[in-house]
């Protein structure tokens, strides 16, 4: 019987029929999606912190309004994704618990510090650029609520990348010190951004099943290569240099060859030893704990209003 359900399920996937929350699905599909979507939601929420760091210090009002809007979008993206994950039967509080206890991960990129204003440019161009590359294929993901959330996210994300590129372009064409600041930001953010696509295909055990279930549409390495090819062209407009001396056009493959990724660093940061892991998690936990009275007060107020309405009606 079980096998029969599974065949029907795979058949739907193969025919590009979306899976909706109440449809039968293999337990592993459900768990994979909960892990991936909640991890994605956590990344949006934690991702507000490195940029939030610069809102009060944006160089002018225009930049400040833009950064505020971007960070607000990230909160919104987190909320779209949490609600998509909840359709799979996990509660919001359980997801928060998993984040706060360290059981759930979020994108390692947010464990790097934002040292200068140019980092806002590098994050927009590279980090959001890499995110978009990952997210566009997810708009066709087989799980309906996830795909629909991603359509909304992608539509909003495009300005995030453009504003980042604009920041870097302005700095690069500015004074010599500003140009150096832009190059320094690129130097620090390049490799962590390249790592955002995750481990190499042969070290990513979930990829094959996720591709078969059409949760993922491209492998980590395919997306990483595409990202590098595009950025290597875009950086010419910025007048900056990508910090990879092995970056070279390859006539045969039709792609850019690139240098060795420091996977040691990647796994160190994943395992909690990045420069800001502790700080990020503590900030989230503090926000959650110190917000408890607000949540309780709102519940109490809603209760009071309900009772008052009931008394009036009686």
């Amino acid at each position: 019987m079980e096998r029969n359900f599974e065949e029907v399920f795979q058949d739907k996937i193969d025919k590009e029929i979306k899976i909706e929350p109440k449809d039968w699905m293999p337990e592993k599909y459900r768990q994979t999606l909960i892990r991936q979507i909640s991890q994605h939601a956590h990344s949006e929420i934690v991702g507000m912190l490195p940029e939030g760091n610069w809102i009060t210090r944006a160089p002018n009002l225009r930049r400040k309004a833009i950064l505020l809007a971007k960070v607000q979008d990230e909160a919104g993206h987190g909320l779209y994704l949490y609600s998509a994950a909840e359709t799979l039967g996990i509660s919001r509080d359980e997801m928060y618990n998993q984040l706060h206890s360290g059981k759930a991960k979020y994108s390692s990129i947010f464990n790097y510090p934002t040292l200068t204003w140019a980092d806002m440019g590098a994050i927009g161009w590279l980090v959001d650029g890499a995110a978009i590359m990952n997210q566009v294929p997810l708009c066709r993901s087989s799980f309906g609520p996830y795909a629909r959330a991603m359509v909304r996210v992608c539509k909003e994300e495009s300005f995030h990348q453009r504003q980042g590129f604009e920041i870097l372009l302005t700095l690069s064409n500015g004074t010599e010190a500003q140009h150096r600041m832009a190059q320094d930001a690129l130097n620090r953010w390049w490799w962590p951004s390249v790592m955002m696509f995750g481990p190499k295909d042969d070290e990513s055990p979930n990829t094959i099943q996720s591709m078969r279930w059409k949760i993922k549409r491209f492998t980590n390495d395919e997306l990483r290569q595409k990202f590098i090819d595009i950025c290597t062209e875009q950086v010419k407009i910025l007048g900056l240099t990508i910090p990879d001396k092995d970056l070279k056009w390859n006539e045969v493959t039709g792609h850019y060859d690139f240098g060795t990724i420091d996977w040691d660093e990647f796994w160190q940061v994943v395992q909690g030893n990045g420069p800001c892991n502790k700080e990020r998690l503590e900030t989230r936990k503090k926000a959650w704990e110190e917000g408890a009275w607000v949540r309780e007060a709102a519940t109490a107020y809603a209760e009071k209003r309900k009772n008052r309405a009931a008394t009036k009606a009686a």
Partner: peptide, 23 residues
């Protein structure tokens, strides 16, 4: 368009305005 958490209907409308109608 999706869902969200709120203590009551008024907060649900206010949150929906922020989450789902920013553009």
């Amino acid at each position: 368009v999706g869902s969200l958490h709120a203590a009551d209907e008024q907060m649900a409308i206010e949150n929906a305005r922020d989450v789902y109608t920013r553009r």
